[in-house]
Computed example of a mutant assay.
Amino acid sequence: MNLLRKILFPFAILYGLITSIRNFLFDKGVLKSYSFDLPIIAVGNLSVGGTGKTPQIEYLIRLLSDKYKIATLSRGYKRQSEGFILADANSNAAILGDEPFQFFQKFKNIQVAVDANRKNGIEQLLGRQEKPEVILLDDAFQHRKVKAGFYILLTSYGDLYSDDCMLPTGNLRESSSGAKRADVIVVTKCPSPLSLDEQKEIKNKLKLSINQELYFTYIDYDDWIYSENKKIKVGEIKWLDKILIAGIAKPEPFFSYLRHTNDTCLSFPDHHHFTDKDILEIKNLAQESIIITTEKDYVRLKGSLPSEQLFYLPIKSSFISASENFDKNILNYVGTSSRNR
């Protein structure tokens, strides 16, 4: 913890008090939460950024989209638009935000919407002629104005919420006691394999309630990199000089997977808006070398860098064990909720 964060500790106490009062008012019904007559799954975290929400949402899309009409609803962080927007052929990363636009690009059989007001966003989706049968709320664990039917809380292996403290001293948006609202807790970005003893140690740290389930996942990197028109095996470019670009919260694993001795690694803030100056710097550094970025950054860089040089590396969330049980829980919740409508 750096000195500035230590100095700001009194503000962390104040922030924690404010969020605790807010949660208490929602718990007691003083502040109203709204429920809806369809299955709603909320994915989120207690800390700011970097827990792997996007691959977790994509996991749920793959699990459910062959059986149900799915919609994702995000706030569209750092988008250059306001209000409710449903993705269409005219959408881009600036309008939707990078992560929703990534969903829209990858999954053609779902609806992708953004709205900072999740209640309004759900109402807008349900007011459409083609209504979704399941809504996935992205980064909505603290958005208590909407009461989801199932909550998935993510926490990173290297930064467990049980080891953290409140903003601005730490990275928590609310007290770790908020984890009690979760139905399932997923420890993300684990090393693979992860021993049973270490899993048990983490479980003891997190202090789960009796009705909660715990799972462990790791980031599974693709064996290929992709451009607009081609793909190349990672093994074929591993030893080539290249430019690696990441505008994500914790880029080191991405760099480590691809990096060779002479590679240049450029790290930008999470959800970074690439300026003309940034693009010029990348072009000057790259010259004729290939440029590899994350899938999330690719949707913002596409069109600004030469298509024959620009590639991205997809990732997905994979379970260390018990994925069948996780899938069963989700499918049971959605199936039961759908039948009871």
Rank of each mutant, 00 (worst) to 15 (best):
N325S: 14
E236A: 15
F104Y: 13
Y34E: 13
N23D: 12
K131A: 11
E324F: 13
K316T: 04
A71M: 10
S304C: 07
S91E: 00
P314I: 06
L206W: 07
Y218L: 04
P314K: 12
L305R: 13
A140E: 04
K242Y: 01
L240K: 14
N92F: 04
R79M: 05
S175T: 11
K238A: 12
I245C: 10
A93V: 01
G76T: 03
S317Y: 01
T336I: 12
S177L: 14
S91D: 04
S304Q: 14
K53Y: 02
P193C: 14
L167R: 05
E288Q: 15
K200C: 10
R128N: 07
G16A: 12
D197G: 14
F9Y: 13
L258Y: 02
I40G: 08
P253L: 03
Q124R: 15
P193S: 14
D197F: 13
P269Y: 02
I135Y: 04
L310N: 02
E288R: 15
D222W: 01
S176W: 00
S177G: 06
K233L: 11
L305P: 10
I237C: 09
Y312W: 05
S74N: 09
L208F: 09
P251M: 11
K205G: 09
K242V: 01
C265D: 01
T264R: 12
A322I: 00
D66F: 13
Q309H: 10
K328H: 10
Q129H: 11
Q212W: 07
V234Y: 02
E130P: 04
I210Q: 13
R144Y: 03
K67Q: 10
D278C: 12
L240R: 11
L194S: 07
G76D: 00
L194E: 02
D138A: 14
K250R: 13
K78V: 00
Y15W: 11
L38E: 02
Y157H: 15
D270M: 06
N109F: 09
I40H: 08
T261M: 12
S91G: 07
Y15V: 06
Y312V: 03
K106R: 13
I225A: 07
A94Q: 07
G149P: 06
D115C: 15
L125C: 08
K131V: 00
Y34P: 00
W239A: 14
Q105I: 01
F216H: 05
D220E: 12
I219M: 14
Q309A: 14
L285M: 10
Y215K: 10
L240D: 07
I292D: 01
T275G: 04
I279V: 11
G97A: 09
T155C: 09
E58R: 13
F84G: 11
L244T: 02
R173I: 02
L46T: 03
Y226C: 00
